[in-house]
Simulated assay, not measured.
Amino acid sequence: MTYIQSANNTHIKQLNKLWIKKERDKTGLYMLEGFHLVEEALRYKEQIKELLLSEEAAVPASWNIDGLDVTMISAEVAKKLSDTENGQGVFAVCRKQEAAELPAGKSFLLLDAVQDPGNIGTMIRTADAAGIDAVLLSHGSADLYNPKVLRSAQGSHFHLPVLSVDLTEAVEELQKRNIPVYGTALEGASDYRKEQAGPFALLVGNEGNGVRPELLEKTTKNVYIPIFGQSESLNVAVAAGILLYHFRENN
């Protein structure tokens, strides 16, 4: 077990770069912070490259850290590493999910250019709760491993495949598998309550612009959620939750 006391340590400086997307893309690694997320990661130990624990952190005795590369760090180092105001002093350096092809399954959530990390994390968590088989993000969406995404997802990214893909190719591949793809749109769409799906893929889009028109042209069918009050629209994560549970119930 290694001990690092100085925040100026070369290894710590390198790990701090993992809060930046460019470094995550370069190394294939990302950082988790906090007891809940690290505890969830410990259930999938093969994805953990290194565990960092502050000497002041009250690490639960139930944590099984056998066989892991564990680094003890000073409070100064923990503060330097933290991405939050009130850090808990526990971190896990994890390996990103990689996949050469779309995962198997009968239910999918597709995110087209969703920009808000909180929305993405919430939708991953909701997809997990609804028993969806995989979440596919377009390359134009916010980074899956953005710390705000990970905090909002609450560890759900470990429970199902969550991948960054070319959505045009994904839609075509899903349809080849006889999985209908339901886009979300305000025009040329039907009330979602009229749809009774078996296997399905749900496609939701950017917070301001919705799903790209070229993708909507490729979907099996497009649906909308009726608005009964005066609000112009629903938050994309809320809309995704309503639709996922509707389609999942009829799967």
Results as ranks from 00 to 15, higher is better:
135 V>P: 11
133 D>K: 01
95 R>F: 06
142 A>E: 14
105 G>P: 09
114 V>K: 12
247 F>W: 03
109 L>C: 07
87 G>Y: 05
86 N>Q: 15
16 N>Y: 04
153 A>E: 06
232 E>P: 01
86 N>W: 11
65 I>N: 10
73 I>Y: 05
209 N>I: 08
94 C>E: 06
163 L>N: 13
240 A>G: 07
206 N>M: 07
176 K>A: 13
233 S>I: 11
111 L>N: 14
47 Q>C: 12
139 H>M: 09
90 V>S: 06
94 C>S: 12
145 Y>M: 02
43 R>M: 13
146 N>V: 04
100 A>N: 15
131 G>E: 04
180 P>H: 00
25 D>S: 14
67 G>N: 09
80 K>E: 14
107 S>M: 01
188 G>D: 03
70 V>I: 14
47 Q>S: 14
215 L>Y: 07
8 N>R: 06
208 G>R: 05
165 V>M: 08
135 V>Q: 00
23 E>W: 03
178 N>I: 07
54 S>C: 08
228 F>W: 07
42 L>T: 04
187 E>I: 12
65 I>F: 04
28 G>Q: 14
194 K>A: 09
4 I>F: 00
126 T>P: 04
249 E>I: 14
168 T>G: 13
121 G>C: 01
145 Y>G: 04
13 K>N: 05
240 A>M: 02
226 P>I: 07
98 E>Q: 15
73 I>N: 04
37 L>G: 02
37 L>A: 12
18 L>C: 07
134 A>G: 05
195 E>S: 05
239 A>V: 13
163 L>R: 06
119 N>H: 04
154 Q>W: 01
6 S>M: 02
23 E>N: 06
122 T>K: 04
28 G>R: 13
62 S>R: 14
178 N>L: 12
174 L>R: 02
97 Q>V: 07
115 Q>D: 06
124 I>T: 04
123 M>H: 05
205 G>N: 05
245 Y>T: 10
114 V>S: 08
119 N>V: 10
233 S>N: 03
236 V>K: 00
245 Y>S: 10
188 G>N: 04
21 K>Q: 15
94 C>Y: 04
174 L>D: 02
140 G>C: 11
242 I>W: 00
92 A>N: 10
140 G>L: 06
75 A>K: 11
172 E>D: 13
53 L>F: 09
232 E>D: 11
176 K>P: 02
162 V>C: 15
178 N>G: 00
183 G>R: 02
